[in-house]
């Protein structure tokens, strides 16, 4: 940790470079960042109007609900993806400079957090437009998002290692997470009746990590507070273990598998 602090400026520089590089290559940089969330709204409005889904009581106009939930899901999924590339993306750098391996994880996380700002901002007018409210509890939203970020980073660090040495595991993890999306209340409300799937949704830790900050943002109170706190504590432990796993394993693999 102390070592990482000494590289604070490096982490800042590396993150800045990744962000700026994204805009240097394209004239429409900002447009692409806006396109995806806006398209998501359009698609869900169409699907909803066609009556394909009965999403349960979402407490908010459905398109806004889906957009916001999807944004949170993408937040989780993208941080996972982004961190899982830490080692492969930066292998050359790691092979030519004696930098702590934690730096590249923090860079990937920082890069991701920046990318998240725009989709998040798109959400606010959409929520208001569809008659939603952003309550005072929204102030707690960033804090409540931390466990979701931490689980994404943790899974990312584990896969960053597995990607190098056991590609099948990391592919499997990608698929599992994609399936999890449908077992997490993203496109339907947390208490929808889904038959036997309801039990899975209830035991899925992501349900709490995602629903709790969402409810805070939309001023829907502190639902599932106990579940959220419990899951957050577990996530914290997972994070420590994943960090340890990554710090021990990543250098070993870079030496053996990237050095030529």
């Amino acid at each position: 940790m102390k070592q990482l602090l000494a590289y604070e400026f490096f982490i800042y520089q590396l993150t800045k470079v990744s962000i700026l590089a994204r805009f240097k290559k394209t004239r429409l940089g900002l447009f692409w960042m806006l396109l995806s969330p806006v398209l998501t709204v359009v698609i869900w409005v169409i699907l909803h109007n066609a009556g394909i889904f009965n999403p349960g009581d979402t407490g908010l106009a459905y398109p806004a609900y889906v957009l916001f939930s999807t944004t949170l899901w993408v937040f989780f999924f993208e941080v996972y993806k982004s961190v899982s590339e830490s080692v492969t993306f930066h292998s050359k750098l790691l092979l030519s400079h004696p930098i702590p391996y934690g730096t590249v994880v923090l860079e990937r996380t920082g890069f991701h957090l920046f990318n998240f700002i725009i989709p998040l901002l798109v959400n606010i007018p959409v929520i208001l437009l569809f008659g939603g409210e952003i309550g005072i509890t929204a102030l707690l939203f960033p804090l409540a998002l931390i466990p979701l970020l931490m689980i994404g980073v943790s899974l990312g660090m584990i896969v960053a290692v597995l990607k190098v040495v056991a590609v099948d595991f990391s592919n499997a993890m990608d698929e599992v997470i994609k399936i999890l999306k449908y077992l997490t209340p993203v496109v339907y409300a947390a208490d929808s009746d889904l038959g036997f799937l309801s039990q899975i949704v209830k035991w899925n830790p992501l349900t709490y990590l995602l629903s709790f900050p969402r409810d805070l943002m939309l001023g829907q109170g502190f639902h599932h507070l106990n579940g959220f706190i419990l899951v957050s504590l577990v996530v914290f432990v997972i994070f420590i273990l994943a960090w340890r796993f990554y710090s021990i394993s990543a250098p070993l693999l870079v030496e053996r598998l990237f050095s030529n």
Binding site: V164, V165, A166, F245, I248, S249, L252, L253, L257
Partner: peptide, 14 residues
């Protein structure tokens, strides 16, 4: 073998 050994060694170190 490199992948196999690396995988084993990662587990051992853990």
């Amino acid at each position: 073998y490199n992948l196999l050994y690396s995988f084993k060694d990662v587990l051992k170190k853990q």
